[in-house]
Simulated assay, not measured.
Amino acid sequence: MTEIDRRTEKLTAALRRAGVRITRQRAALLSVLAEADDHPDAVDLQRRAEEKVPGISLSTVYRTLTELENQGVILRHQFEGASARYEHSETQHHDHMIDVETNEVIEFSNEPIERLQAEIAEAMGYEIVHHRLELYVRKKKPLA
C-alpha cells in the first residue's frame, strides 16, 4: 500500500466515523487531499477534484474540509492576507514561511529555534503545549 493510499483510507475512515456519505465527488476530493504535498486552499482542491470527477461544489469541499478538520486528520492554516490552506495532520512538526509577494508557503524545521522556544517557556515557568511559527518573507532584491 502506498503512502497516498494509506492517507486516502485514513481520510475516508474519518468521514465515515462522522457519518458522512462518501460520494464519487468526495472520494475524488479525498484522493486530491491525500496526494497534496503543498498547502492548497479550498478553491485549489475543488479545481483538482473537478479534474478527476466533475460536479463537486465548493460548498461540498468546505463542508468536507470542516469535518476532516473536526476529526483531526487535516490541519487548517489561516495565513495573514490569504484564504485558509490545508495539510495532512500526520506531518512532522514544522514551521512556515509565507512569501508575501507570491503567497508560496515554504515548510521548514530548525532545531535551534525549537530549543530556544522551549528555553524561553521554561525560563518563564511554562512548558510548550502547542505552537505555530509563521514568518512572512520576500525574496531579497540584489544590490545594484
Rank of each mutant, 00 (worst) to 15 (best):
V137F: 10
S109I: 00
V32H: 12
I120Q: 03
L33I: 08
Q46R: 09
E119D: 13
I4G: 01
N110T: 12
R63M: 13
S83H: 03
P142K: 02
E122D: 11
R24S: 13
I120L: 10
L29E: 09
L75H: 01
E107T: 02
V129E: 06
E104I: 13
E127C: 07
E114Q: 13
Q92H: 06
H130R: 05
A84P: 15
Q25R: 09
G19H: 12
R6M: 13
K10P: 00
T8A: 12
E127V: 07
D44G: 10
Q25I: 01
P54E: 15
L33M: 15
R76V: 12
Q25W: 14
Y136L: 03
I4P: 08
E3M: 09
V137Y: 04
F79S: 08
V20D: 08
R115L: 08
V137C: 06
S57P: 11
T66H: 07
M1N: 14
L133Q: 09
I113Y: 10
G72E: 07
E87C: 05
D95L: 03
A118F: 13
D38H: 07
G125Y: 11
L29P: 15
L135K: 09
E90I: 09
M124E: 12
I120Y: 00
V100K: 13
K10H: 07
R26S: 11
E111G: 01
S109W: 00
D37S: 11
L58M: 03
R48A: 09
E3V: 11
I56N: 13
R24A: 12
L65G: 12
L135R: 15
I74H: 00
P54F: 13
H39C: 10
E101N: 14
L65N: 15
N70H: 05
H96Y: 01
R16G: 02
E67N: 00
T66I: 03
F108M: 11
Q25M: 09
A144C: 00
A82H: 11
E67S: 00
I98C: 03
H88P: 01
E9I: 05
E119T: 08
H77A: 08
M97N: 02
K52C: 12
E3G: 12
I22W: 04
F79W: 04
P54C: 10
M124Q: 06
Y136D: 07
N103A: 12
L65Q: 07
L75A: 13
E90Q: 15
E111V: 09
L30F: 04
R6W: 01
E107G: 02
E80C: 11
H94N: 04
G81Y: 14
Q92N: 03
I113W: 13
E51W: 11
S83R: 14
V100E: 03
V61S: 01
S59F: 13
E122F: 11
L45I: 14
S57E: 15
H130T: 00
Q78D: 05
H77V: 02
T64K: 08
L15Y: 02
